[in-house]
Nucleic acid binder design. Sequence first.
RNA 1: GGUGGGGUGGCUGAGCGGUUGAAAGCGGCAGUCUUGAAAACUGUUGUGGGGAUUUUCCCCACCCUGGGUUCGAAUCCCAGCCCCACCGCCA
Length: 422
Amino acid sequence: MLDPKFIRENIDLVKETIKKRNLKLDLNALIKTDNSRRRLLVELEELRARRNKANDEISALLKEKKDPKPKISSMKAISEKIGALEIKLKEFDTELEKLVLTIPNIPHSSIPVGDAGCNKIVRSWGELPKFDFKPATHIEISQHLDIIDLPRATKITGSNFILFKGWGAKLERALFNFMLDLHTKKHGYTEIFPPFLVNRASMTGTGQLPKLEEDMYRLKDDDLFLIPTAEVPVTNMHRDEVLDEDSLPVYYTAYTACFRREAGSYGKDTKGLTRVHQFDKVEMVKFVKPETSYNELEKLVADAEDVLQLLGLPYRVNMLASQDLSFAASKCYDLEAYAAGVDKWLEVSSCSNFEAFQARRANIKFRRKNTKKLDFVHTLNGSGIALARTVIALLENYQQKDGSVVIPQVLRPYLDGKERIS
RNA sequence: GGUGGGGUGGCUGAGCGGUUGAAAGCGGCAGUCUUGAAAACUGUUGUGGGGAUUUUCCCCACCCUGGGUUCGAAUCCCAGCCCCACCGCCA
């Protein structure tokens, strides 16, 4: 969320943001509520000041053994008025909060303005694989190699779930182990293994709630949610905390399964592994000082790119335009890996700078040493990287004419030194 | 799941319905002393919000959360959440 005070003082900038994001949002209600609330607050606080003063006087009268009764009865009416105004204030607060939560983050000045067509490919890496045969899709390959069993996953649970088997299961495990090792040993992240279930406060802290409740799996009896990404538990580690300036930047990486209902996306990417309800992902999360956050974003993207480069998967880096940018982000790069069988660029990572948007909501601060003032940290996160889609790219790009699949060099130590799955 | 105990500032820990935003200690910061350090001593030290004559001043709120009683609540009542201990169940 944005700071209501910031909105008040930068109303033109917020209007411009809404325009850039192509949203239909009326700010008048917000401005009006904010003004009414403050007018009421002044009135209420004056009354409370009077009450406090009177209470001191009553207290003094009692000490002098004088009769406080007249004073007390004169205060009764004021107290009732205060009670009434407090109820009204609460209504304004609730309303204002509701309205403020509908305001998205301000896009960074460096990103293109426009819809997804304006997204900008800032760089590409690797060469597209060439075949002297028609490359098969990951569905065909995994069936042939007996490493993924979708019909049985459907039987056990339902459609759009995956069951990895044999070398498929080992490949999955090899991938996230490789990624965690890379981020912890080479890129300096601290490994976290968080709970996969989180409470409502955590979901609200990172912004999944209240907006996206429909997209989440929820355990009704306990009011807990299956995490849609490790971003939720890991970012919420520091919810309502004040971090040491010296401890920043904080880098965390975590493997988790991710659960998404994908409500409303039926009919889109329903075949194969592209869009599933449960997938594995290694996530990177950063807590940084505001003045460093854009530099940190570039480093975050580089860390995610390193995974793809070491796996030898061609990819491109897509800087999202204002209308394609998620609600809480100021700037975001998507990494898209090429998959030869389906001949598509698949989004395997999304690296975002949220500036103080999440930190304000989750109340994550740090104290500056020189001024001793509290300030919100900037939070960033990025996939490093999402697995099911990476498996698609691996299978399709490394397939051979004989139907086998070559294993990239970096994964072999995790797979008993095996060179190919056949 | 059952029983008992408990949630107060950065930490430990007092707190009678009425100058208690909160004792005391520790820690932090500044100063005195010292060649320097330690010790000792002195002072200082929470957060959020609002107002104005906006580098300063004034006010309000906050003692787990939400209600209630009262002229007045950290203190009394109710509900919830969380923590600790023991018992039960359990990988």
